[in-house]
Design a protein around this nucleic acid. Structure first.
Lengths: 231, 231
DNA sequence: GACCACACGTGACCC
DNA sequence: TGGGTCACGTGTGGT
């Protein structure tokens, strides 16, 4: 029976550190009798006290740990540890997720995807599909639809941008439009989850005709290269 | 090697009980005899085994916990707990930081959403009519409508700003809202000649209630004092 | 009275 | 030799 041995072993085995490996006390068997004798009482009491202190410390730590964990299943010692373990895992996962999300955002920033076409479906399928050029695997998608083709001499135009939500992206877009010589007459922006739809009606400030792809490229450029906005 | 340790166990177990046996203090002088008697051997062994199992479980958990913590100071039991505690705190902090960063991003970007219309005309006539008081000759006209009076504890609010068109004003307004702790859920901005109407639906990030006039004053402040935006 | 989880004191170990 | 740590078996109180 007693596999007990195993129990302990298993433990030791996993942490091979082993070295100390516990007990093994060599041949204590033999000695035995005087073996115990050799310990003085005074010292024993010392040990006793020390052990008490140790236990207290351990318990304190355990409770501190429990205090950190938001929801505990039981107040069992084992449960404390188990909950703590789960909590740590959960936190780690959370951190990882947040980090990738942030990262994506951030380089999506560069990558605002503008996808879909807008409103009255007259907006033509003039599409710019941008793929992340730079940093690897990340996809940057842009789709841009505008009605410039209809009448390039017209002052008022409509565009739609569909892109991932990114920090500062909107502001940069607005700034970009202004930079390109457009007055924004009307804007309608909506976000669903991480997808943003922005519909503009703009008016040219100057008299030149509008080059559709110049607009697209410039906006992409702006969205990508701009330094981080303050907000 | 390790087993031998067990060896000891096995020994104890078998003779197990046996009574008094010395070791344990027995000083229980008085009671002593029958006291221990009252416990059946079988049951004791049960307890023994159960205790072993419990210990094993605890240790396993402890080691699992240690395995999760990236850098450990010692392999001490107390250290395991201590390190775990610190690690959890660290993770929590990390999560918090990432979240606020993301949130900021996000509400920048939310800033992105400008949607149109929105206006079901329920926007209530809570008015702040601001006249350019301070900075000189320029008259600034502001009208501000918000529904904060309805339920200050409500997270989602709607506001309308009517103002003269000014270069960069819109961007500053968005930034100001973010600065005040609002997430912009929906925006609808329209300009007619030099008059701009901006309708927001916002959500508070924090839990404090909203001070209507604080919002108004702050927005005005932001709109007025901010350095010049590019747009 | 079974079961469970705990605290205790103790012997052994290591630096 | 001594402070610190550990595993163990046991007693006990709360279900």
């Amino acid at each position: 029976m007693k596999d007990q041995t195993n129990g302990k072993i298993s433990v030791t085995e996993e942490n091979n550190r082993s070295d100390q490996d516990s007990d093994h006390k060599n041949g204590d068997e033999n000695i035995d009798g005087e073996c115990r004798k050799k310990i003085g009482k005074g010292q024993q009491s010392k040990n006793l006290e020390a052990e008490r202190k140790r236990r207290k410390k351990l318990n304190d730590r355990l409770y501190s740990l429990r205090a950190l964990v938001p929801n505990i299943s039981k107040l069992d010692r084992g449960a404390i540890l188990g909950d703590a373990i789960n909590y740590v895992k959960e936190l780690e996962k959370q951190v990882k997720d947040l980090q990738i999300e942030l990262e994506e955002d951030s380089d999506d920033e560069n990558a605002m995807k503008i996808v879909r076409n807008s409103t009255d479906n007259k907006v033509p399928p003039l599409t710019l599909h941008q793929n992340g050029t730079k940093s690897g695997p990340k996809r940057e998608k842009w789709k841009f639809f505008g009605d410039f083709h209809k009448d390039p001499k017209e002052k008022v135009h409509q565009m739609e941008v569909l892109c991932e939500h990114k920090h500062g992206g909107f502001v940069r877009l607005i700034e970009g439009l202004s930079y390109l010589g457009f007055q924004v007459i009307n804007v309608n922006a909506t976000r669903h989850k991480c997808l943003v739809s922005i519909i503009f009606r703009v008016e040219r400030r100057d008299k030149e005709t509008v080059q559709a792809d110049h607009v697209k490229e410039s906006l992409l450029e702006v969205a990508r290269n701009q330094f981080k906005s303050t907000v």
